[in-house]
């Protein structure tokens, strides 16, 4: 009997579509509402971990999980040393620079030379601005980024938007798009080689589930 493969799943917005995909592949065993963090589908030799999205690449890079599902935004931010064989096409969103309406009305982004930005994507933010010759002072936050400009913590934010509803509700306007993101399947480098057949089989099954938008 082979050792079970471990698949890391992200809590939050990607969990429901990920589970939907797994169910349509005939995999089961994860109760989304449970407080448990580890589940197994013993019949298929699979184990599931439910993790904070930003932790998924770490588990996979270290081999604590063989595979993982995580947003491209997090992969671009962390640049983990893993394989990334499949765009799962769900969980589409965009990483944008946004600022309060009042600032936007008199702002000219082409004149920026120094900005203060609140974000949980410091690496992507740094890269984006420095490529444009703009100095950036980073205010690193872990959530509710939209709040920062309202209380004067930073003038601008870099954050993920899906519908743009949260930005609008907080009086913010999108100024620039940094990148687009969808959910990706990532695979530990060693697992792809040492567990070659079960891992490739799982990737192939997922490939069949992916419908291009």
């Amino acid at each position: 009997m082979n050792k079970p493969l471990t698949l890391a799943l992200p809590k939050g917005r990607l969990l429901a579509p990920a589970l939907k995909m797994l169910r349509s592949m005939g995999l089961d065993g994860v109760e989304a509402d449970s407080r448990k963090l580890i589940f197994s589908d013993e019949r298929r030799g699979l184990r599931f971990l439910i993790l904070k999205p930003a932790d998924v690449p770490t588990y996979v890079a270290y081999g604590a999980a063989d595979l993982g599902i995580v947003g491209k935004d997090i992969l671009l931010e962390q640049e983990p040393d893993v394989y990334e064989p499949l765009d799962l096409a769900f969980g589409f969103c965009r990483l944008v620079v946004a600022e309060p309406m009042a600032l936007w009305e008199r702002d000219d982004p082409s004149k920026w030379s120094w900005v203060r930005v609140a974000t949980k994507y410091p690496n992507l933010t740094e890269r984006y601005f420095s490529e444009r010759g703009i100095q950036v002072e980073m205010v690193r936050l872990d959530g509710s980024i939209e709040l920062a400009p309202l209380v004067g913590l930073a003038d601008r934010i870099v954050d993920l938007v899906q519908s743009g509803e949260t930005l609008r509700a907080n009086g913010l306007v999108e100024v620039a798009e940094i990148t687009r993101s969808t959910a990706r399947l990532i695979v530990n480098r060693a697992s792809l080689k040492t567990e070659y057949s079960p891992v490739s089989r799982l990737i192939d099954q997922m490939k069949k589930q992916v419908t291009r938008p």
Partner: peptide, 9 residues
Amino acid sequence: GYVSGLGAP
């Protein structure tokens, strides 16, 4: 060279 159980070569 990779071995099962270690996530890096």
